[in-house]
Simulated scan of single mutants.
Amino acid sequence: MNDLLNVSASPHVRSKDSTSIIMRDVALALVPASIAGIVNFGLKALLIIIVTIATCVLTEYIYQKCMHKKVTTSDFSALVTGLLLALNLPSTVPLWIPIIGGVFAILVVKQLYGGLGQNFMNPALAARCFLLISFTGRMTTFTYDGVSGATPLALLKSGEETASVTTMFLGNIAGTIGETSVLALLLGAAYLLLRKVISLRIPFTYIGSFMLFILIFGGEGFDTTFLLTHLFGGGLILGAFFMATDYVSSPITPMGQIIFGILLGVFTGIFRLFGGSAEGVSYAIIFCNLLVPLIEKVTLPTPFGKERARHE
């Protein structure tokens, strides 16, 4: 009988995917958006990407060495954090801003809470929100083709004529380095889906609930151009597929992921339509990251064979 049974502690079913493989896939999926950003905004965008990634990796290495912890820079998580942060920055920022942002993302948001798997919010988005609050002027100054101008969402919010939907889909507009080309982002998202790194549960419920919110409260009815401008403008696609799906800061239960996506859509709609800024993706994701423990507590399934607690 002992030859037939192998008694061991759980988990009994293990995935072949490691952290480094998953992070490598995410980095590869962001390559099309990075290339599009460099083509649109020039070599300054490439320099910002390099500096931000180097800052994140170096910060993690120095901290773990100083704290006599195992160095985990080889798992690519710091690289992905740096790349995501860089893609959320305008190409006009001075290089000291991505350096500050990279240190904040890795040191404050990730390492001080225990490292990968312990952070309660997405480090790249937390750093972006920190930079937006601290350096609002520099973080909201955009140029395209050498000309300073507002983003399509800012123009839409002010009632001015915005770029065509086709132009926004291709990414020939002002914005942050990695959010402008929807085509490039969708190519990367398709790669993650094919590799089964992410599922469509969070992105679809996020985008679907957001579009429904805009349809109901946007004041334009079923105006296709208005709806697509909100869909293609800003960081919605980048946030939905690459940051809201972060393993650490998103729910693990299927129902929890659906609730998470719906809340993301609602809060993004509130911030965009009724807030002072034209964008709201970063703040919506950060805020909903804080709700994840409550969402998981409510949606955690009852273990098989265990009776639910009775309420008197």
Rank of each mutant, 00 (worst) to 15 (best):
I262T: 13
T140E: 06
I97C: 02
I38Q: 01
P94K: 09
A278K: 06
M1V: 09
F76C: 10
M211E: 09
M139T: 04
S249K: 08
S164G: 14
T167N: 12
L83W: 05
N172T: 09
A184S: 11
L228Y: 04
F217S: 06
Y206C: 08
R308D: 13
T176G: 02
P293D: 14
G221S: 08
V39G: 05
S20H: 11
F287T: 15
M243W: 04
V281M: 12
A174T: 11
H68T: 09
L46N: 04
V7T: 11
I35S: 02
I177V: 09
F304A: 13
L79P: 00
A33M: 08
K196V: 06
N172F: 11
F241L: 08
G235M: 03
V108D: 02
L192S: 04
G265C: 08
F271K: 04
T302E: 12
L46R: 01
L112F: 13
P32S: 08
F267K: 04
A309D: 11
M23T: 01
V103S: 00
I202N: 00
F120C: 06
G239L: 09
A9M: 06
T52V: 10
F222A: 14
L28Y: 12
L185N: 00
P301K: 11
N119Q: 13
G117D: 06
Y283P: 06
A244I: 03
E60L: 03
S250R: 01
L155N: 11
Q118L: 12
C129L: 15
L294A: 15
F232E: 05
D246W: 07
G280V: 04
P251Q: 09
G171N: 00
L156I: 02
T55K: 03
A244T: 02
A184G: 01
S164H: 06
R138E: 15
F232I: 12
L116F: 14
G221I: 03
S15K: 10
T166I: 15
S277Y: 15
V298Q: 07
D17I: 15
D25K: 10
L116D: 07
I38D: 00
I106H: 09
P303Y: 06
D3V: 07
M139Y: 02
V80C: 10
P303T: 12
S181H: 05
I22E: 01
G149C: 02
L89P: 02
N122V: 11
P98K: 04
Y283F: 15
L231C: 05
P293Y: 13
G234A: 09
I237K: 01
I177D: 04
L30C: 07
A124W: 04
G269S: 11
L215S: 13
F135C: 06
N40K: 08
Y283D: 10
L84W: 03
G117T: 04
A154T: 11
C66W: 13
S20V: 14
F135Q: 05
Y191M: 13
G280K: 01
L156E: 06
F104V: 12
G102P: 08
G218K: 08
D223R: 05
L153A: 01
